[in-house]
């Protein structure tokens, strides 16, 4: 980079121009995909359409302040939906991480044969679009279409997957099916960076497979675990596709405002209340952003402390 300071001014200007040109395509896309909708959504949520006189003169925008945000925070549909996705996250995230971690450790264990085969197998659902996965599972949940419910009946489990008590569980199962494999392969890959000499030392000290897994491998991949958890939490807040599909079979339970995203969708497209829909979306984005930031900070701390421990 020392050439940078030595280059004469015209060359440096040209270089600056080229740097700008290399960055431009991404930032143009970024502006359209992130900055503009956030900005426009913010403006929409802060202003309301008012009709002047009898409405013959058309409408104009008036500043409404944080009216829509205050409304959302008092709207039981929004709060219930938010509570529902948080409950979903509380169940889904630990289950997902625990199962994915066990599978990753099994794959990593020297005892497991055919680990490439199992990795490929477990990754399969990652290539099934979320909508398709939801459709297939709804068919499996439907008594006439699949023998799943009658099998469960045979072993004494009488489950109606579409009843109000079990819909959340039915959705969690779809999400687990879609993401366990992906997360376990991600964790497995992280496990590959555990230094073989450390494992060898543990073995010489007489530590067994399980002991090694708990005291060396798991701490080593804690950052990867936090990342998996983080993305699962963000995904949970965004819950939309699966409940949208389940509405067809469990319409009385899964209402149009069952999750915040469903509510934003129905406010925009059924009620045409754009400013309220924008406010809900931005609130949800803000919650997700804050949670991610917290988790990032957490990983940063874990990273740093483990680095200190290494040195």
């Amino acid at each position: 980079m020392s050439a940078l300071t030595a280059s004469p001014p015209p060359a440096r200007r040209r270089r600056r121009l080229h740097i700008a040109l290399l960055l431009a395509p991404f930032y143009l896309l970024f502006a359209v995909a992130f900055v503009a909708p956030l900005g426009y959504g913010l403006v929409l949520s802060l202003f309301r359409e008012r009709f002047t006189g009898l409405g013959w003169n058309g409408s104009h925008l008036v500043f409404a302040g944080f009216h829509d945000y205050a409304r959302a925070l008092q709207d039981s549909r929004f709060l219930d939906g938010l509570g529902r996705v948080l409950l979903y996250a509380v169940v889904d995230v630990p289950l997902m991480l625990a199962i994915a971690l066990v599978l990753a450790l099994l794959l990593d264990s020297a005892l497991t044969t055919a680990r490439r085969f199992f990795q490929a197998l477990l990754l399969l659902p990652h290539f099934v679009p979320g909508l398709i996965a939801a459709l297939i599972w709804v068919y499996l949940y439907t008594p006439g279409l699949s023998p799943l419910t009658s099998w469960l009946n045979d072993i004494g489990l009488h489950i109606d997957f579409f009843s109000s008590g079990s819909v959340l569980g039915s959705i969690i199962n779809i999400s687990l099916w879609q993401w366990i494999g992906y997360n376990s392969v991600l964790l497995y890959v992280a496990l590959q960076s555990v230094s073989p000499s450390v494992l060898e030392a543990a073995r010489l000290d007489g530590a067994g497979e399980i002991r090694t897994a708990l005291s060396i491998k798991v701490p080593h991949i804690r950052p990867a675990l936090v990342v998996s958890g983080l993305f699962t939490v963000i995904g949970s807040l965004q819950l939309f596709t699966e409940p949208k599909i389940l509405q067809g079979s469990a319409g009385s339970t899964v209402t149009a405002s069952w999750t915040p995203n469903l509510l934003a969708f129905s406010e925009a497209f059924n009620s045409n209340d754009y400013s309220y829909a924008a406010a809900i979306s931005l609130l949800l984005a803000a919650v997700a952003g804050v949670l991610s930031l917290l988790a990032m900070k957490l990983v940063g701390r874990v990273d740093r402390s483990s680095q200190e421990a290494d040195s």
Binding site: A33, F34, P37, L38, Y40, G41, L44, I234, G235, L237, Q238, F240, N261, A264, F265, A268, A277, A278, I280, S281, L282, L284, A285, A288, G289
Partner: peptide, 9 residues
Amino acid sequence: VPGTALAVP
């Protein structure tokens, strides 16, 4: 920022 949150905006 999750992409889905931006779909409606």
